[in-house]
């Protein structure tokens, strides 16, 4: 969780709103407070109050990061571990979150889950029959490969990449656990929706020139890019 200054009532309000939207997502998830932009939060009492408030909301705070020396000491005083350095992904994630659903009361303190990375055991999934309307195929621990057509109204969900060798008319969501390096590869694009790590585009803004083309879909910063496969191949060859 990234703070931008000492938390006030408004912070807790918007936090509660966020928690209500996804009641189980953050429940008991290990949480780190990022103090990079909250240098004024140095009083151990303030920190203790924040931790108490978060724990009341079933958020399991266990550490701080990007703390100044004073803050690190204050953290230790209230029983938190001070960690050095942060990863980039959650920052991008939080910014994107704001872009996607602009808050009525814009809050700088967007909460991004800083969950400990789960143990990586990948199990890929291969489906070689047509995926019909209304069916959902989930690869919850890796890549999903479909050999056959995917109908409109069908859903493909994977924590890793999604490959579709066939005409793709349905919805594909790759990197659903937040993996921003996940990609979607599609032999013949006619999809209703494409999403990577929660950032999506619908058929309305996919562009008619890409229809029925072989494409790959990936994240480039905040943009979901859909590139014809032949062009990207040329580019990567350079």
């Amino acid at each position: 969780m990234r703070l931008a200054g000492a938390p006030d009532d408004q912070f807790y309000e918007s936090l509660d709103v966020r928690l209500q939207q996804t009641p189980h997502f953050f429940s008991d998830a290990p949480l780190i407070i990022d103090l990079d932009q909250a240098a004024d939060l140095v009083d151990p009492a303030d920190l203790q109050w924040l931790v108490d408030n978060l724990r009341q909301r079933d958020l399991s705070v266990f550490g701080v990061q990007n703390a100044t020396a004073d803050q690190a000491e204050a953290a230790r005083a209230v029983g938190l571990i001070s960690l050095s350095g942060g990863r980039d992904a959650p920052l991008r994630g939080s910014r994107r979150e704001e872009e996607r659903k602009p808050d009525p009361a814009p809050e700088p303190e967007a909460a991004a889950p800083q969950a400990a990375p789960p143990p990586r055991t990948t199990t890929n999934k291969l489906v070689s029959t047509p995926v019909r309307s209304g069916q959902t195929v989930i690869a919850d621990r890796g890549d999903l490969v479909i050999v056959g057509p995917v109908s409109s109204g069908a859903e493909l969900i994977a924590t890793g990449n999604i490959h579709i060798y066939g005409h793709m008319r349905g919805r594909a969501m790759a990197g659903i656990n937040g993996d921003e390096t996940a990609r979607i590869f599609c032999q013949s694009l006619d999809a209703e929706l494409l999403a990577i790590a929660g950032l999506y585009r619908t058929s309305e803004n996919l562009g008619a020139e890409l229809r029925r083309k072989s494409v790959q879909v990936y994240l480039e910063g905040e943009r979901l890019r859909v590139d014809p496969l032949d062009r990207t191949q040329n580019r990567s060859g350079q």
Binding site: T129, V131, R132, S133, G134, Q135, S151, S152, G153, A154
Partner: peptide, 13 residues
């Protein structure tokens, strides 16, 4: 056609 596709999914599951 779309409803038939849905039914085909049910027939297979």
């Amino acid at each position: 056609v779309r409803d038939s596709d849905r039914v085909l999914g049910l027939l297979n599951s």
